[in-house]
């Protein structure tokens, strides 16, 4: 386990020193959401109706934007092959990098959510459920996205390719995240939605680092 935290600390330190990354993700998140009132008009009812969906879609796109660099930089400067040559299992390395990714992108998104809930006139009953679904959902996004980030290593056209690979896989998380918030706004029980989201996360926790490590191994075979 010490290897896990060593890598998490190093990635956090890198993120902190080259700065900008977390900041840009949050800035994208906010700007993408702010575009909607311009697109559909500032009418409070309409904004409230679409708020949960818009915030979730923007969060999903923001999380995805930063994923391209998850392994890419380490791959290019030779760090990734050295990490694969340490006495730490590669799955643990991948898990550590996903954890650091979530701490530097998923968590800041959560922090920015209240602001966007106000902008989009999200009904109060839905607010805490929105925060909760993002808290459960964004780790799943980082986990699933890590597979895509590992698969595009060494390819031509990384970023666009990445979105084509992982956005379809994000649809279940999106569906349950948004319908939980909508359910809460209409006064329904959201337990089932949250349990399914937690189930997705629990399933992704072991499977995604495993698949990601497999993808990295074949990328390093070149």
């Amino acid at each position: 386990m010490s290897g896990f935290w060593t890598i998490v600390r190093r990635d956090l330190k890198l993120a902190q020193r080259q700065g900008m990354d977390s900041y840009m993700v949050v800035a994208f998140f906010v700007i993408a959401v702010v575009l909607f009132p311009f697109g559909v008009g500032p009418e409070a009812n309409i904004l409230a109706r679409i708020s949960s969906g818009v915030i979730w879609v923007a969060a999903l796109l923001a999380a995805m934007l930063s994923l391209e660099r998850l392994f890419q930089i380490d791959f290019e400067d030779g760090s990734l092959e050295l990490m694969a040559l340490q006495p730490v299992p590669l799955e643990v390395v991948v898990m550590a990098k996903i954890t650091a990714h979530w701490l530097t992108t998923g968590l800041p998104l959560l922090v920015a959510t209240p602001l966007l809930a106000v902008f989009m006139n999200l009904p109060y009953e839905g607010f805490w459920v929105l925060v909760l679904t993002l808290a459960i959902g964004t780790p799943s996004l980082s986990l699933i996205g890590a597979i895509g980030a590992a698969l595009i290593l060494g390819s031509r056209r990384g970023g666009v390719l990445l979105s084509l690979l992982i956005l379809p896989l994000y649809i279940p998380v999106l569906i349950f995240g948004v319908s939980a918030v909508d359910g809460a706004i209409s006064g329904l029980s959201v337990k089932a939605h949250l349990l399914i989201m937690a189930g997705l996360l629990v399933a992704a926790l072991p499977l995604c680092p495993w698949a990601g490590a497999g993808a990295i191994r074949q990328a390093l075979e070149t």
């Binding site: 290897g3 890598i7 050295l82 040559l85 006495p87 730490v88």
Partner: peptide, 26 residues
């Protein structure tokens, strides 16, 4: 293993670069 790439991170100091790799080993 010493390959073609140096794996030196630009924002980490020389000591931090080296101690990171050493910390992954027993």
């Amino acid at each position: 293993y010493v390959g073609h790439a140096d794996a030196v991170k630009p924002v980490l100091t020389v000591t931090e670069n080296i101690s990171f790799w050493a910390a992954l080993r027993p």
